[in-house]
Design a protein around this nucleic acid. Sequence first.
DNA 1: CAGTTGTGCAACTCTGGAGTTGCACAACAG
DNA 2: CTGTTGTGCAACTCCAGAGTTGCACAACTG
Lengths: 111, 111
Amino acid sequence: MGADVVDGVLAALADPTRRHLLDLLSEHGQATATTLAVGLPVSRQAVVKHLAVLDAAGLVDSTKVGREVRYSVRSAALDATARWMAALAAEWDRRLARIKRIAEAAERDSR
Amino acid sequence: MGADVVDGVLAALADPTRRHLLDLLSEHGQATATTLAVGLPVSRQAVVKHLAVLDAAGLVDSTKVGREVRYSVRSAALDATARWMAALAAEWDRRLARIKRIAEAAERDSR
DNA sequence: CAGTTGTGCAACTCTGGAGTTGCACAACAG
DNA sequence: CTGTTGTGCAACTCCAGAGTTGCACAACTG
C-alpha cells in the first residue's frame, strides 16, 4: 500500500476545515468552491486551496462543467488509510504481546 | 466515540517525525526520550515535545522509573481512530449510492 | 452587444508548531 | 561528598501553511 497515499490523507485530515469540507461534500454529493464557501467562515480562495490539498490526497474529485468546477468525495483513499491504520494497531498489539512474553520468560529464569 | 480523540490522533499522526517515533517505540516496547533522540536527526528536546503531543493524543504512555521516563505505545486510540475512519468511508459510500439512485430516478422521469 | 457571475492567479500578512540552545535541578555512581 | 548523567523549563529562531485581498479572464444571460 502506498505510504505516500497514507501520508497525504493524514496531512489532509489534520485540518478541521478540510474535515468539515469533506463532511459538506459527502452530504451534497456535488458542490463548487463558491457554494461550499457560503457555509464556512472562510473565503472562497481558502476553500479552493483546501480542495486542492484534498484533491492531491485523492480524497476529492473535480469535474469541470461549463465555467464551474464541481467537487465530489472519493472514499478509496480514506478506506485505504483506515485499513493501514487498523493494520498498524494490530502490529503494535503483536509486538507488545511478544515483548511481554520475553519479559515474563526473563523473570521466570531469574527466580 | 469522542471526536476530540480522533482529532488528537489525526493531528499527532500528521507529523512524519512523530510517526517515526511511534515506529521506534513499537519496536523496542520501552524507550526514553534520550534514547529515541539518538536514532533521529533531531534534538532530545524536540523528541520530548513530540512525545508530549503523542501522550496528549493517547497514543503513548509514560512511566517514571528513577530519574528517567520510559515511554511505550498504546494502541487503543489508534484503533478507535481506524474504526472511525472506516465508518466514515462507509458513510460516504452510503450517501453516494443514495445520490446516484436519486439522479437515475430523475433522469428516468425526464424521459 | 453589455452586464453579470464563477474561477484562476499572484502577492501579501500572520500565527502555530517544529526545532534549537542554555541552564537549573534531580537522581545516580564512585 | 564530588562528579556524572538524564529531565524539565524557558526563551528564542524560523518557516510552512491558513487566510486574506485585488485583479484579470472565461463563461453564461439578457
